[in-house]
Amino acid sequence: MAVFGHTFPFYPGPKPVFPVDTTLAVITTIFLTALVTFIIILPGIRGKMRLFWLLRVVTSLFIGAVILAVNFSSEWSVGQVNTNTTYKAFSPRRVSVDVGLQVGLGGVNVTLTGTPVQQLNETIHYNEEFTWRLGESYADEYAEALEKGLPDPVLYLAEKFTPRSPCGLYNQYRLAGHYASAMLWVAFLCWLLANVMLSMPVLVYGGHMLLATGIFQLLALFFFSMATSHTPSCPLHLGTAVLRTYHGPAFWTTLITGLLCVLLGLVMAVAHKMQPQRLKAFFNSNAEDPVLDWSPEEGGLLSPRYRPMAESPEPQDIPLSEASSEACLKEEYLLEPDCAL
């Protein structure tokens, strides 16, 4: 840097920032594709079953998408502040910036945006991620950030979450993230099993798995809250302001979805005891020995209607032709002596 006449650390410029998280974009695209596919075939389902199918599919896809999205989200604990702070190391010049901190289950994301963006003849717009997932080293990523010479606010917040920091944030949030992520993966597995069982005539077990889905989501929130609640007080001073964190959208979305799953599971359990026929009608099935009746009025192959044996038509005697009748009488006449013997 001395060759080029730079007294302070040289910043090559911020890297391009995608407007949204790529992982969340992929998850959203997959579930929206599934929803659009169902909407395309929805007109083939006739009658009231069309509304029931739409409600079931939309609710199920929403729950599955939320479980996956929050597992990869970086907004479990968030904070943002506008402040005047130093921008480069060893430089007294200050800039007006918005500093954001997002803590997820797998790492920390720090954003730095100038107000205005163009200051000191530079574009101040940074979005840096430091992860502690299995197989990745937070300390190595922080060392790389030091080598690149990232702005002071980014390095300051990232340093607070390093393993050697006296704040102890690394161990608390890393442990909380691992346990919460494990619970969410179990909840996702329960969601898959619930969908399989609800598509089969085992509605009560599907309701139990849906209840388990909600319980494991609430357990993820419990582990995250318990681990982070013991975090020692470590004020984050940025210039003249203090950055404070609070539970973010991912936390509250998980809470709402978990309570929804628990409520639906309890409703299905109560309905199975009190109104089993209505529950079976909602899921288009019958617990008795069914006879499939592919009625075009009810949606054809896409929406089979089940009819119990009690409602099945009774067997009818089919009249035989004259030739068949004479043959039967002749056979009975020839067999009579044998019967007499």
Rank of each mutant, 00 (worst) to 15 (best):
V3E: 12
H6L: 13
T7S: 03
Y11E: 15
G13R: 02
P16T: 05
F18K: 05
V20Q: 15
V20R: 14
T23C: 09
L32F: 15
T33W: 11
A34I: 08
L35S: 06
V36D: 07
T37R: 08
F38N: 11
I40K: 08
L42Q: 10
L42Y: 04
G44V: 03
G44N: 09
G44I: 04
I45C: 02
I45G: 01
V57D: 09
S60N: 08
S60H: 15
L61T: 04
I63N: 07
I63A: 14
V70Y: 04
S74F: 12
E75W: 14
V78W: 00
V81G: 03
N84I: 04
T85S: 12
K88I: 02
S96P: 06
D98I: 08
D98K: 12
G100I: 01
Q102F: 00
L105A: 01
G106W: 02
G107I: 10
V117P: 02
L120E: 13
E122F: 05
E136S: 15
S137N: 12
Y138L: 08
A139I: 13
D140V: 15
Y142R: 05
A143T: 12
A145L: 04
A145G: 10
P151S: 05
P153T: 01
Y156K: 12
L157P: 05
T162G: 00
S165P: 06
P166R: 15
C167D: 07
L169A: 07
Y173N: 06
R174C: 04
H178M: 09
A187S: 10
F188D: 04
L189K: 07
W191P: 06
L193C: 03
L193K: 05
A194K: 01
L198I: 10
P201Q: 11
V204E: 13
G207R: 01
L210A: 06
L210T: 10
T213M: 08
I215Y: 05
F216I: 06
L221T: 09
F223E: 14
S229E: 13
S229I: 05
C234H: 03
P235T: 12
P235L: 11
P235E: 11
L236G: 00
L238Q: 02
G239V: 01
V242E: 14
R244L: 07
T245Q: 13
H247V: 00
W252E: 02
T253H: 00
T254K: 03
L255H: 09
I256T: 11
G258K: 05
G258M: 05
L259G: 10
L260C: 11
A271E: 11
H272P: 00
K273L: 11
K273F: 08
F283N: 07
N284V: 01
N284C: 02
N286G: 02
E288D: 11
E288G: 07
D289H: 11
D289V: 03
D289P: 00
P290Y: 02
V291F: 04
V291C: 03
S295P: 00
S295E: 12
G300W: 14
L301Y: 11
L302D: 07
S303M: 14
M309K: 03
M309S: 04
S312K: 15
E314N: 01
P315I: 05
P315D: 12
I318M: 06
A323K: 08
S324R: 14
S325E: 13
S325R: 15
E326S: 08
L329C: 07
K330D: 13
E331S: 10
L335Q: 14
D338C: 10
A340R: 15
